[in-house]
Design a protein around this nucleic acid. Structure first.
Lengths: 229, 229, 229, 229
DNA sequence: GATGAATGAGGGTTCATTCAT
DNA sequence: TATGAATGAACCCTCATTCAT
């Protein structure tokens, strides 16, 4: 019976969705409706990502999102409080799965050369060649107008990435694999990734950019600096 | 009479403005009106930059731009065809002065260490601590929705910067000052600058970033790599 | 099977409900379901009265009515054709029981002083301190938009009240208990009752009104006028 | 110059309108635009009264108000913040002129018979046969949903009317013209007026009511009661 | 019968653009 | 030229009503 009210207007929220997903796995009961509900929600999120990415938050019409998701306009409001909620939950939903992954990264012990390779590879395959790239782009383009989202991203994702990368760099520097200075600005390591995302959206049609090669090159250059210090 | 129509509704365009500026310098006639007109135009552009930066293109109301520029809403249309034109001319106007400057940079002969220092310094003083930072940010955040502007930026600014930086790097690599690989991706050199601009708008309140230090560190690391290769 | 359709969507109407009530008394068959149905209907009406009174017809959401009645929104449509029907039947249902009562009032023989006292008392206890007050208020506030309801109220309730009161006043005047003029405007006798209902909804929080005292005073003043004429 | 900003979006308010009216009288300058503005505002208010009276607040579409006032929908928002403001200012505007009039009424010295006659006459001519009747009706029908308006009406209008009537009745009672009890419930004196307004909107088509006659009769009956007490 | 998810028409409000002054 | 009142298309959001389960 509780499941009946799982997704309801005005209250549809990440927690509810999570609960729904959980209950869907835990029980065997009337999963049909729940599954359908989850599908719908996802269809809306997919359509929203597409539209928000193409037009930006303000210029996106919920009408178009609905059309793309093949549902009626009003249906969106059964799953999200309003346009802003849709946007925020979209970003949250896309970023949340990463959070857990990052935590462990910092603990891995391996030569920096190996780790860095792995990180680059992960970024390219898990972010750049994914819709997550679009989410990051949305963070960049719309973040200023959604301080809460920026904060969420910083607290839950970015700060952890930075901490993890910093930990790795510290240990690598201690081992003499890289200059200690790099650990002061872990952002440097990720900078080309950001450039790639921005570039791909704006200038790829004029001059394509081989992201993986660029990032690899960057890492190699930084690693080469060890012998200098 | 001709002067009167120099800047007029529906036709106000960069060329006209340029012509106006030119004529203002060349002749001695009724410059007063022209000067006033130019001032107005500038006031509108200043206000527009402020508003567009704070809210983004779509969310900016011309009403607010007018209020900030201390003119009537309708007056904007005497200087710019429409909101989009205002935006595009704003970006063009802000970027144009840079264009000439860049051309020469590539020709300068000096050790990379010196040049790089100078470039970093220039970026921080001429871009990052300037409203130009906001223009770059606008390019990043709104560029996708204004392909023409992205193209203009690429053709007139970015491609030249990249070419100049690449030339510098090539010569530096030839002299053994830096790895030749870097010349393949001049974007790497600028990447921290982009990170800085994005970061400053989104996360500075959580964790301030010392842009100059970061860029310096980056350059030093890259330069250190020469001994390795 | 027939019983099943007794109260059904699209056709649920006062007659049906009446028939249902009748059949419920007359027979002994599957009354359980009928009783439940009647209960539901009543729960909806109760909730509707509450909501309509608080917000008015237009501003009332059937969603809220359903929530208050602890049923699903769709269920309302099993008992009432639409929102308007619900409203009209609500008023009809609340007023109908009065109809019979009124008919007899006019026939009662007693000194006006006694009758008037009884009327005031009845009004206060049976109307003013009851939800019927809210129904009257709804008649007043929404009546213009529901001419049918206004007509029903006039034909079935008001005209009878007026006729009854007029009869009483005529006889009282004949007995010299009150001025004959009062019989021309029986509305005068009820006027304070109306004032009380309107006042209670709007101004009681600023200045409470003792309805019973006011009505008593009014009646006494009118009765006192007999000696003058 | 100040006049230029007299009526502006988002700020159009009673004070502004008042200032506008004032300045229109005080100066001789560019009254043309001001006059037009005032006309527009009035046209909107007239149309709004018509529509609100016919359909009630919620059911009224601003589209219809605009159509009736022969302006564009958006224009309404140049004069009123939103639908609710339009409604509230409508009522305020219609009631305000009465306020001053009432203050003096209580001070008039004359036999109650004369005063009462005058009051009835005033009510019929100034309220009942005027659009003010509709405003009062709106107060009655919508007042509950607009506590502020109800409060305004009570503080600025009703309480003064009651005080004035009470003062009159006290003096009349002292002179033996009427029972002292009436002064406890001045509402009684006005009750038929309220009945008339309600009746006229709902039941006039079934049974017309001679308001003046009813009120006269009522007054006479009350006055007649003096000999009894 | 009962449910509540889904629908989509409708309306309040905003704001780029126009135009009479 | 400059103004700002006026316009009306566009869009978010609500909610009565329907319908598959």
């Amino acid at each position: 019976m509780a499941a009946r009210r799982t997704v309801s207007a005005k209250t549809a929220s990440p927690e509810k969705a999570a609960r729904l997903r959980a209950s869907a796995k835990a029980r065997s009961g009337p999963t049909a409706r729940e599954a359908r509900s989850l599908e719908r929600r996802q269809a809306i999120l997919d359509a929203a990502l597409e539209e928000f990415s193409a037009r930006g938050f303000e210029a996106t019409r919920l009408d178009d999102v609905a059309k793309r998701a093949k549902i009626a306009k009003g249906t969106i409001y059964l799953y999200f409080r309003d346009k802003e909620s849709l946007f925020q939950e979209l970003i949250r939903d896309m970023l949340t799965p990463i959070i857990g992954t990052i935590q462990n990264v910092g603990a891995i012990e391996a030569p920096l050369a190996v780790l860095a390779d792995r990180l680059v590879d992960m970024f390219v395959r898990e972010v750049f060649e994914t819709r997550r790239k679009d989410v990051i782009r949305l963070m960049i383009t719309e973040g200023r107008r959604f301080p809460k989202i920026a904060e969420f991203y910083y607290r839950e994702v970015l700060s952890h990435i930075i901490a993890a990368v910093r930990a790795i760099l510290r240990r690598a520097a201690a081992r003499g694999e890289v200059s200690a200075a790099l650990a002061d600005f872990p952002q440097i390591l990720v900078a080309p990734g950001l450039v790639a995302i921005v570039w791909s959206g704006l200038f790829d049609r004029f001059e394509p950019l081989d992201v993986r090669a660029m990032m690899k090159t960057h890492v190699e250059l930084l690693l080469a600096s060890r012998k200098a210090s």
